[in-house]
Design a protein around this nucleic acid. Structure first.
Lengths: 245, 245
DNA sequence: CATTAAAGAGTCCTAGAGACATTTAATAAA
DNA sequence: TTTATTAAATGTCTCTAGGACTCTTTAATG
C-alpha cells in the first residue's frame, strides 16, 4: 500500500475500512425529565443486556449507522422507542468519553436532556415493566448503570441554569398550563422559592407565552388561574439577568 | 452463541469484539484561540492525509484508545503536538455527528475550544509550514476541511457568551496584562465596544484578578496601566448579569 | 353572606449596568 | 518650563429589572 499522501482520495476511500483501526464505542444517552404532581421525574430503563444487565439506566444506546441520520435523531429514536413519542424539547448537554466507563473498552457517550409532558406518554409506559418514571431524588440515590448518575446530575445542573435565565422548563408541562404551575416547576428545579411578582414580570416582558382565554379547572377554593401556552421561540428566549442564586 | 441475557457478564465480555459491529468514527477537534495585536486568531493545521488532503482544518483527530485517558486528554494531546504546550483553558463545546460529514462514513466529533497566550508557542509554530495562526475573520472566509467552519462558529458563539458573563477570555492573554488589554479582548470577541467603567466595576466585584504591582511598559503617550494576573477560580466566576447584547 | 385560599397586581427598595464627565500620569511639542 | 496630547482610571448620575412585601380580586366552601 502506497503512503496515503500519494494516493488519490478516491483510492484512499475505496481502500478505507474502519475495522482496520482500533475504534471506540460511541453511544447517545438521554435524560428525559417530566413533572408529575409538582415533582421532577426522570425516565429510566432496565437494561436487557450486558454489561449492567438488569440495572436501571438512561434510555439510549449505540448509534445505528443505518437508521440514524445524526446524533439528535439517535437520541429521539431511543426516546421514542421507550415513550412512543418524540419529546418537544431536546438539547445536547455534553459528551463523556474515557477508558474506564464501559468494561468493553474506550467509550464515548453524547448526553442529551429532553423535556416532555407526562400526560403524553403515560399509557405507553404503564404497560411495560422495564421502563419507569422515577422521582429525580430517588434516581440520584439508586445505583445506576455506567456513569449515568453523573450524567443525570450534569443534565440537572444544565436545566437549573436554564431555569435561571430562560423558560425552557415550560416544555416539561402539558400544552396548556397556569403561571403558578410554571413557577412551581422552576422552584422544584432550582430547589428554592421564587418571588412570584418577579417571575410574572419577566415572563410578561419576555412575551413568549400567550393566554388561551380558558381558566384552569380549579378543584379547590381560590381564584381560578388563567391558562397559557407557549409561543414560538420560547426555547431560545434568554433573560439578561439570572434569577438570584 | 446463547442469548446475551443468559450468559454471565464475564462470558459476554470475553466474547465481545467491537469489530463484530458497525461502529462509527469518533474524533476530537479543538478551536484554539489566541489574541495577537488585539485581534483574535485561531490555530489551523494543513491536513497531511485524505480526506481533504492539503486543506486547512482544526487541530484534532481520532481518539487513540491506547494513549488517551479521556476526551480532554485527547484534545490536549493533539494541541500539544501542534503548539508544544498545553493551553491553560479548555472547554467542551458540543458534539456533531451524522452520516455525511465524513466521506468515510458515520462520524462523530467532539469539539473543544481552548485559549492560550500567543507568546507561549510562537517559536514552535513559526518553524513549520503546516501549522498556522490565522485571523479569525480570515478562517471564516476560507474553505476548511469537513464541517470545521461551523465548529469554529459554534466555538466563537460560546466564547461570546462567556465574554458576556465571565472572565474566561483572560486565558487568551499572557500571564500579566492590563485591564485595557482585557477589555479590548472582550470587545474584539463581542464585536462591539464596552463601557470601560462598567467593565472595571464588575471585575473589581468579581475579585478574580490581582495587581502585580508592576506597570505596563508603555511605549507611547498616556498614563501607564497597572498589570494584573488572574487568581484561582477565574474560569468559574459567573456574573449575575450579562453585558448588554 | 362571611370565610378562605389562590391568583395576580401595586409599590418601594436596591444592585448593578449605561452614559458621560473628570482626574491622573505619562510623552511630545512649544 | 510650560502646555497640549493621550490613555488610564475614577466619579457620578441615570435607568432597568429583580427582591420584598402589601393589597386586591375571584371563586369555592360552609
Amino acid at each position: 500500500m502506497k503512503p496515503m499522501s500519494q494516493q488519490t482520495e478516491q483510492a484512499y476511500l475505496a481502500s478505507y475500512n474502519i475495522k482496520d483501526y482500533d475504534v471506540c464505542l460511541t453511544s447517545v444517552d438521554s435524560v428525559l425529565f417530566t413533572v408529575i404532581h409538582g415533582e421532577l421525574y426522570t425516565l429510566l430503563v432496565r437494561r436487557a443486556n450486558h454489561p449492567f444487565l438488569g440495572v436501571w439506566g438512561l434510555p439510549g444506546g449505540f448509534i445505528d449507522v443505518q437508521l440514524d441520520e445524526d446524533l439528535s435523531a439517535c437520541a429521539n429514536r431511543h426516546l421514542a422507542e421507550k415513550t412512543g413519542v418524540t419529546p418537544p424539547y431536546l438539547e445536547q448537554v455534553a459528551s463523556v468519553g474515557n477508558k474506564t466507563r464501559d468494561p468493553r473498552g474506550w467509550s464515548t457517550t453524547v448526553t442529551y436532556y429532553a423535556l416532555m409532558a407526562h400526560a403524553h406518554c403515560t399509557t405507553d409506559i404503564d404497560s411495560v415493566d422495564d421502563v419507569q418514571w422515577l422521582p429525580l431524588q430517588q434516581t440520584l440515590n439508586m445505583e445506576l448503570a455506567f456513569d449515568h448518575k453523573q450524567m443525570i446530575e450534569q443534565a440537572l445542573a444544565r436545566l437549573q441554569q436554564k431555569a435561571l435565565y430562560s423558560l425552557v422548563p415550560v416544555y416539561a408541562l402539558p400544552e396548556t398550563f397556569t403561571l403558578s404551575e410554571l413557577q412551581q416547576l422552576h422552584e422544584v428545579i432550582l430547589g428554592k422559592s421564587i418571588q412570584s411578582k418577579s417571575f410574572r414580570r419577566r415572563i410578561e416582558l419576555a412575551d413568549v407565552l400567550e393566554e388561551t382565554g380558558e381558566l384552569s379547572q380549579h378543584k379547590g377554593k381560590g381564584k381560578p388561574a388563567a391558562l397559557y401556552r407557549v409561543k414560538e421561540g420560547a426555547a431560545d428566549y434568554r433573560f439578561m439577568r439570572n434569577l438570584e442564586n
